[in-house]
Design a protein around this nucleic acid. Sequence first.
DNA 1: AGTATAAACGAACGTTCGTTCGGTGTCAAA
DNA 2: TTTGACACCGAACGAACGTTCGTTTATACT
Lengths: 194, 194
Amino acid sequence: MSHDLYKKRMEALLSYYHKNKRLPTYEELTRVFGVKSKSAAFQYIEKFIEDDIVRKSDEGFLIATPRLYGARVLGEVRAGLPHDAEEEGLLDCISLNDLLIHEPTHTFLLKVSGDSMRDAGIMSGDMVIVNRKKQAKIGAVVVAEIDHEWTLKYLMQKGKKMFLRAANKKYPDLFPKHELRVGGVVTGVVRQYI
Amino acid sequence: MSHDLYKKRMEALLSYYHKNKRLPTYEELTRVFGVKSKSAAFQYIEKFIEDDIVRKSDEGFLIATPRLYGARVLGEVRAGLPHDAEEEGLLDCISLNDLLIHEPTHTFLLKVSGDSMRDAGIMSGDMVIVNRKKQAKIGAVVVAEIDHEWTLKYLMQKGKKMFLRAANKKYPDLFPKHELRVGGVVTGVVRQYI
DNA sequence: AGTATAAACGAACGTTCGTTCGGTGTCAAA
DNA sequence: TTTGACACCGAACGAACGTTCGTTTATACT
């Protein structure tokens, strides 16, 4: 088994998966791999199964593992980037969806405008991941409605009273005149550079 | 068709999809939906297809759409959260993977340590999404090797010479003594609150 | 009670799936 | 030249798939 061919076919499989959001059938795999028989594809997939790039579910279906659909994670910036395909074997692979969204039904993304949370690393234009069913802890970043206005702030407590605090000294603390309602807890932040 | 039932079954389908990373067969759908016949499941799926929650691929396979596996996106914080399931119809649904990782083969996640980029909203503990094949533009955040040390900085230019700049005034600009090599361009940032 | 409408049932269908197996070609060591 | 290993081919198999269709049940309205 040539290593180059192995990598090429794995990338072909990944590319198919990203395009179609599913693994090909063995019949389709003949085209993906560039072989003429299903059995050749079948045998090749067995190697991928050994290497945990794909997996057989309990019901016998072929499913992708994070090794295929996830992004490779490196330890730290200081360690640099691995040279090419050398030591990729020992890298973790994760899916951002799986990592950041645990309760898809209760989770929203919210676009942030304004710089009131910039010292918390939440910039204007970022998206925050909001879980609306999670219990808000004091000190957490929350999406809250204070006196009928929605905003993104730290949830704070003074005595028994809750209030909101920006992560930017130029904004004052917000004490509710009438009502403070937490709409959701920020569980993550994502930013995209174009 | 009851709306409650519809939502319940959609959540059951979503839950199955998140657990198994694939859509169930019609036979399995009978269990997911709580019906006794495949045909009942089949008819129900047709409604989901109409609503673009799932889709039939050109080859006739059932595939999930971002409406199922993605997270709902709201416009802005100021607009508040939608009340429950009211106007969810008009919300976009996106997958964080699809949004942030366009070239999975060339993309890595890198854990950040240090506060040299905090004014750019990149905090210690964040993960940056790095594309190693993308052309680095001046002013972009890059992962670079400067005199054999890896770091995360802005890529800057003075005359013909490239150098690195932190997003934190207390760090000086870094001019390479010997070598400056860009290892990848930061295309995104993700942070997770626990 | 009677009727209309929608939802679910259950059996049946042709198709295509994953898998197996025996055979062919190729290269290298013996 | 033989032998073995390896990758692939091609035909074949039963099993499971998606889909159809006529019937039955449940719900709502008259």
